[in-house]
Simulated assay, not measured.
Amino acid sequence: MTRVCFQLSVSPEHLDEYRRRHAAVWPAMLREIEASGRRNYSLFLRPDGLLIGYYETDSVEASDAYLEASAAAAEWEAHMGDLFDGLDGRADQAATPLEEVFNLGDQLAALGE
């Protein structure tokens, strides 16, 4: 399993709309995220627009390829695109991945606990 964390920037003037759209994500998009192999998917939004996303998957490449080929994902990303700062293309493909530098479970496992 791979843990993925990424960041994007939501335009501060669009924060309320971003929250509103994510309060009821389209059922087809929810199913596509699940079908892509992503689990434990969460988004966190700071008041200045910093967006941090996290998910787990068995294959980042397979998950990305699945969503890249998904018509529902393309439609959702087009629907969301106007809410981001400095976005060129689809948010799911332009997000900046963050390096994982600590995981409690991994370190405890290494200790044999």
Score class of each variant (00 low, 15 high):
3 R>S: 13
4 V>H: 04
4 V>P: 01
4 V>A: 03
9 S>F: 00
15 L>W: 01
16 D>G: 00
17 E>W: 00
18 Y>T: 05
19 R>T: 12
20 R>T: 14
20 R>Q: 15
21 R>N: 09
28 A>D: 14
31 R>I: 00
32 E>G: 09
38 R>V: 11
40 N>E: 15
41 Y>S: 07
41 Y>F: 13
44 F>L: 14
45 L>R: 07
47 P>T: 12
50 L>W: 08
51 L>I: 07
51 L>W: 02
52 I>W: 02
52 I>Y: 06
53 G>D: 11
53 G>T: 05
55 Y>N: 11
57 T>F: 01
59 S>A: 08
60 V>R: 10
62 A>C: 00
62 A>Y: 01
63 S>R: 06
63 S>W: 04
64 D>F: 04
64 D>K: 09
64 D>L: 07
65 A>I: 03
69 A>T: 03
70 S>L: 07
71 A>P: 01
71 A>E: 15
75 E>N: 05
75 E>T: 13
75 E>L: 07
87 L>A: 05
87 L>T: 06
87 L>D: 07
89 G>S: 08
89 G>V: 04
90 R>G: 02
93 Q>G: 08
95 A>G: 05
96 T>N: 01
96 T>G: 01
100 E>L: 09
101 V>T: 13
105 G>N: 14
107 Q>I: 15
107 Q>T: 13
108 L>F: 11
108 L>R: 11
109 A>K: 06
110 A>T: 07
112 G>E: 10
